[in-house]
Amino acid sequence: MSSLRDIKRRIANVGTTQQMVKAMYMIASTKLHKARAQLEGVRPIYRELSRVVRELARQGKARKHVFYRGREVRSSLYIVLTSDRGFSGSYSAGIMTRALEHMEEKNEKILVVGSKGHQFFKKRGKNIIGTIINLPDAQVYYGSESIAHWAIDLYLAGEVDEVFIVYTRFETLLSYVPCVDRLLPVDISGVEVDDHEHIKYEPDVNTFIDNVIPLYMHMSLFRAFSESHTSEEAARMVSMDTAEKNADDMIRKLTRMYNRRRQAAITQEINEIVGSATMLNVED
């Protein structure tokens, strides 16, 4: 049985924790606000570019280009976006499980972003070829550009035959979906060849593809980063909110326990006094 003083100490403890949680909630919600603005900005250009890239596949000539024509898959590059910090509920677990599932029966090469993912894949003996930890928000834009170029170089050099991006798509504050998209070769399922298509490409189709794919890759990565970042902050905000409510419940419970104990102690004391008083009266 804990004494009154112990309970009091615990209430104070939970109170401090609650304040910390509250602060983290505020930070997450500010960051979420920023991340969402960035995400809303990048989504249109990503959507349009992926449409352009897919429409290109209608041209028979484009399909012969190295970025479209698939080849026998010997190894696959995975760019996995995870987080550096915890306190975000099932966010990290969700994305890593999804990545792991997808990697089955693949000869994987992983570029992992975030320390959580690094620990996870290292423990499972996966082939990590690169790790990026603590990427500042301000460098995400140029960072994704250099990752895009790096991935394209690996693909062109034949070191990898597929490039996947694993990220968490942000839908609403309460729902985020772990996704795996194939970036290279371009996914052309569902696009019919139509050589009568009248779109002309300047200077020519191949040069156009050579120029549009790096841009498309850059925007895809930047968008994936933004999606993941927004999901992470949303997850953190929601779990901090839950934690705050839990702390509230706990404080209420402890306070009730404390009051009950105090009351019991007082009652007992009164009983003792009354008891001894009665005894004294009888003796008189």
Partner: peptide, 19 residues
């Protein structure tokens, strides 16, 4: 400005995509 010179566009232009 395109990669190989300037490109002028008037309404009713034929479908073109350029770098």
């Amino acid at each position: 400005r395109c990669t190989d010179g300037d490109l002028g566009v008037l309404p009713g232009h034929a479908p073109v995509s350029a770098v």
